[in-house]
Computed example of a mutant assay.
Amino acid sequence: MTAPSPRLLLASASPSRRRILRAAGIEPLVLASEVDEDALEAAHPHADVHELASLLAEAKARSVLAQLEAGAPAAIAGDAPLDPSVRTLVLVACDSVLELDGRPVGKPHTAHRTRELWDRMAGTSPVLWSAHWAGLLTRESAQAPWTLTDHRAAAGATTVRLASPEPEELEAYIRTEEPFEVAGALTIDGLGGAFVTGIDGDHHNVIGLSLPLLRRLLADMGVRWTDLWNAPGALG
């Protein structure tokens, strides 16, 4: 009997990351991490942007690993449920942080903070860092616990060229509240996309998950990217 293909478990409830994976032929399982990002950032005041994004991505992965150890598989979500016969999971955790003037810019949370950030960012070309942590989990049976057998980590950087929104445009954008909970108070795949005039690098990295970078990390662990294809249409 052929062993079932591995499944990808995304340590994030991000709709954007799920859309990226689905468009790439992968219907992910989802188990959201439980990480206080602001507290972690405050605990590492001297971390550079690359280091901070990497710390956040690993913390999210460790949070999900802890949930799995505590019996959280029942909480795993996804449009394609986890087959009990699956013996391999690929855990993927990501975090994005914008670098502006050499300093990290996280999620603004409020209208006031969003306005302050855009006053600094408009017309500039900051760098968006997206850190990726990928782990290989295996189990001997449907009742056995998952065991982390290998992992890799890396971060991608993409330069984002920003427009200078008119004051009325910025206030309209702020009223949508979209920029409040995204890295650097900007998006490229939503309402903020019109304020991005161009990018240098992988556009998926700006959305929060770099497909070529993730493919390389998985290949280093012996996982073939196409073995993860399971979304409707991916297999013909």
Rank of each mutant, 00 (worst) to 15 (best):
P28A: 07
A66R: 12
H109T: 11
V30A: 06
A122S: 13
A194D: 15
D202G: 00
G192Q: 01
T149F: 11
A75D: 15
L191C: 11
L40P: 07
R17C: 07
D150L: 06
M121I: 10
E171D: 14
T158Y: 04
A183M: 04
L100H: 15
V86W: 09
D150E: 11
R224N: 12
D83H: 00
D36M: 07
V196A: 05
G198I: 05
N205A: 04
W146K: 00
V182L: 06
G236S: 14
D202C: 03
R115D: 09
L10P: 01
T124G: 10
H204N: 15
R161H: 15
S63E: 13
A134Q: 03
T88D: 10
A70I: 03
A163E: 12
S96D: 09
P104R: 06
S12I: 08
L82H: 01
A47R: 01
G233W: 10
S85E: 15
V92T: 02
V105G: 14
V105I: 12
G190F: 05
E58M: 12
D150S: 12
A43M: 09
M121S: 10
T187D: 07
L128S: 10
D38S: 14
G222R: 00
T2A: 13
P84C: 11
D227R: 11
D38N: 13
Q143D: 15
A234P: 11
G208Q: 06
L100D: 15
A219S: 11
G123K: 00
L211H: 05
D79M: 10
T124L: 12
S210C: 04
E166Q: 14
S63L: 02
G25R: 04
T159Y: 11
S33I: 02
P212G: 05
R175P: 10
G25F: 06
D150I: 08
S210A: 08
R161I: 09
L8K: 08
I76D: 06
L217Q: 02
R19F: 11
S14H: 06
A185P: 11
I20F: 04
